[in-house]
Write a protein that binds this DNA or RNA. Structure first.
Lengths: 151, 151
DNA sequence: TTCACTGCAAAACCTTTGCATCCCC
DNA sequence: GGGGATGCAAAGGTTTTGCAGTGAA
């Protein structure tokens, strides 16, 4: 399981202020919600539901705009797991690529570390003259729990 | 570049009939359009536009339903390149996995062969107890043409 | 005070669905 | 003729946008 660290609350708040973004209570709440759920891959709607308790007046559009902003700043990473909505997670400080194991039965997303692909990118440039700047690897299958459920 | 063969028009038509699906002129037109554009990764809207010339009364819903059907039969493969719409291509007869090189500038999708990942799936099962049944690998970067445009 | 940010509602997109009609087999 | 397939329009789900009002700096 990946254990890379991400920026902490204070650092992120400073970064917002230093870029002349306002540190509104909505943004603070969303950020804290992410910190409290850093193990999960939350969708905008997930964040919205979680945040509603603490901040009932939060608008869904604000959640979308905040997630966009944090992704643009590189604080969050936007993922597409093929379930028709974007899911976000903290960007890790270390540069290790990690990939996603998506359970076809329950949809659970776990993670997997890998550096194997770095060498592949060199091969691709030689073979296809395609300059790789990022890759996106998903493994689809069945998590341990669902394997026993299904058989 | 991948050069795997796919089923031909006649074989596909037979397959439809044998599964008690009707070979309507709409389905024939869509199929032929795909054959004439087999190098490209077409979206439903792409197909709809292409088909409109030959069959002006075609409905967009029919395109979606036909693409769904062909994907269910394994004739087409549904891809998600992260541009907010599904894109389809013929399923290759050979079992070689091929992956997609997506240009961040012009959106062009080219292909890349690889068998390296098969061994990775074994590692994943040992490490994560996650039973991989499929994987999805995308490389993002700049195609040869755009590399010269950008610099 | 100012101007970025917010909430709300409406719109934008892609895709699916309901239904009356059509037409392949 | 029957039942799957079609076209149309409406609805669905996620995300974006317009706008008037709000509030952080």
């Amino acid at each position: 399981m990946v254990e890379g660290e991400h920026e902490d609350y204070k650092t992120i708040c400073d970064r917002l202020r230093n870029n002349s973004y306002k540190l509104t209570p909505q943004r603070q709440t969303i950020l804290r919600t992410f910190l409290e759920n850093s193990a999960r891959h939350l969708s905008a709607e997930d964040v919205y539901s979680l945040v509603k308790n603490e901040y009932p007046d939060m608008g869904l559009a604000t959640v979308y705009r905040t997630l966009d902003l944090l992704a643009e700043l590189g604080i969050l990473q936007k993922n597409d797991f093929g379930d028709g909505r974007s899911r976000y997670e903290f960007t890790r400080k270390d540069e290790h690529h990690h990939h996603h194991l998506i359970c076809l039965n329950c949809g659970e997303v776990s993670e997997f570390d890998d550096d194997l692909l770095e060498s592949l990118e060199t091969v691709i440039f030689k073979r296809n003259r395609f300059k790789v700047v990022d890759h996106d690897l998903k493994f689809l299958g069945y998590c341990q729990k669902c394997q026993s459920t299904l058989e």
